[in-house]
């Protein structure tokens, strides 16, 4: 494609920032929780913030803080982490032909910033053709918001009223529904999403560990088979 030259990198960064803004909204309460839960369970403020700065993985942070408080071993924490974080392998695989061709100075930060939310905005049906600056802008803004929310949570600590019971999970669910539904533009995509839904709910109901990845793979397989057999 020899279309018009790409706009200035700053504008592409800003586009990414705008694209991820609605997803930041849903993650703010989680960041607050990650911060307040960390100091509430006995970690120092610095440790609480370091989790968000270095791990940058909401679900893992909350699980690991709880496990550390219960005196779990490092091996147990690593195993739980591996299960939760395994889905990122699929994101890396999906973006391999686009990000994998970039120089290391791009791959490292984009890899570090690769969250569910960043993957979601990069693979939306109306996302621009892959643009490293767009991805970087979105990733950096999300990182910043996550860490600012954590900071507020750390500072407020246990004075933050119990926000766990408010149904924060639903904010994430609503965001992902908002991203996924417009993407379902043909039959294989519908089959993929519905298969993943059924397997994920079934696995959770039966208490099967690693159900998320299992469900994702089932959805991907079902979508692809549908595309081959009855598109």
């Amino acid at each position: 494609m020899n279309a018009a030259p790409l706009p200035h990198p700053g504008r592409r960064l800003a586009r990414g920032a705008v694209a991820i803004a609605p997803l930041c909204l849903a993650v703010v309460p989680w960041g607050l929780l990650a911060g307040s839960y960390a100091v509430g369970s006995g970690l120092s403020p610095l440790e609480g913030q370091a989790l968000s700065l270095i791990l940058f993985a909401g679900a893992v942070q909350l699980v690991v803080i709880g496990m550390a408080q219960d005196g779990a071993s490092l091996a147990a924490m690593l195993l739980a982490t591996a299960f939760i974080t395994a889905r990122h392998l699929l994101y890396g695989l999906s973006l391999r032909d686009r990000v994998g061709t970039l120089p290391l100075r791009w791959r490292l930060p984009l890899g570090f910033l690769l969250t569910d939310e960043l993957f979601a905005v990069c693979t939306r049906h109306d996302a621009p053709a892959f643009d490293r600056w767009f991805m970087l802008g979105a990733g950096l803004v999300f990182y910043l918001v996550w860490n600012l929310a954590t900071l507020v949570g750390v500072v407020m600590g246990e004075t933050l009223p119990g926000i766990e019971g408010l149904g924060l999970e639903f904010a994430v669910a609503a965001t992902f529904i908002a991203i996924v539904v417009p993407n379902l533009v043909d039959r294989p995509l519908w089959v993929a999403a519905l298969s993943a839904l059924v397997v994920a709910v079934l696995a959770a109901h039966l208490g099967i560990p690693g159900g998320l990845v299992l469900a994702a793979l089932a959805g991907m397989g079902a979508g692809y088979v549908t595309e081959q057999v009855a598109p």
Partner: peptide, 13 residues
Amino acid sequence: RYAGPAVLTAIWG
């Protein structure tokens, strides 16, 4: 091609 809808649905379901 189906990774996005499949993973995100497996999270919200």
